[in-house]
């Protein structure tokens, strides 16, 4: 649910793909081996583990097309904010370096999210240098 009214949005693509476990309603996290249900509060397109935010590189250009042969682990590298105030996770594939965007889900680990959000500012050298030069 967007937090602010956004002007023009394309309608969401339906997600009806099978996961590697064979079951349609659960997948296993490649980072922490947690069994994750596909249904999540706040999103219909969960692609990452709610506990460690790790994802898997299976899709090509279109979400859900399962066109990528890579299959590598994708780690969350940064957070971006959409114009309507929603957080988006940027995942980077550890195998091939591809980047993907995904909205956060309602049950994502808040501590892990905030840790990624403050990471640019946590480094004393760069953050302070940027702040001082303003």
């Amino acid at each position: 649910m967007p937090r602010r009214k956004s002007t023009s949005r394309r309608t969401q693509r339906p997600k009806d793909v099978l996961h590697r476990t064979g079951a349609a309603d659960t997948f296993r996290c490649v980072g922490c081996r947690l069994h994750v249900p596909v249904v999540a509060p706040g999103t219909a397109h969960r692609n990452h583990c709610p506990s460690c935010l790790t994802s898997r590189h299976v899709d090509g250009r279109v979400p859900g097309d399962r066109a990528s042969p890579c299959g590598g682990r994708m780690v969350a590298v940064s957070l971006s904010v959409r114009a309507d105030g929603e957080w988006l996770l940027v995942h980077e594939c550890t195998g091939c370096g591809a980047l993907k965007l995904n909205r956060i889900a309602g049950d994502d680990n808040a501590l892990a999210l905030v840790r990624i959000a403050v990471r640019p500012l946590a480094d004393p050298g760069l953050g302070r240098r940027a702040m001082l030069s303003l």
Partner: peptide
Amino acid sequence: VRPLAEPP
């Protein structure tokens, strides 16, 4: 600082 300015 943008994500921290608009936390969910």
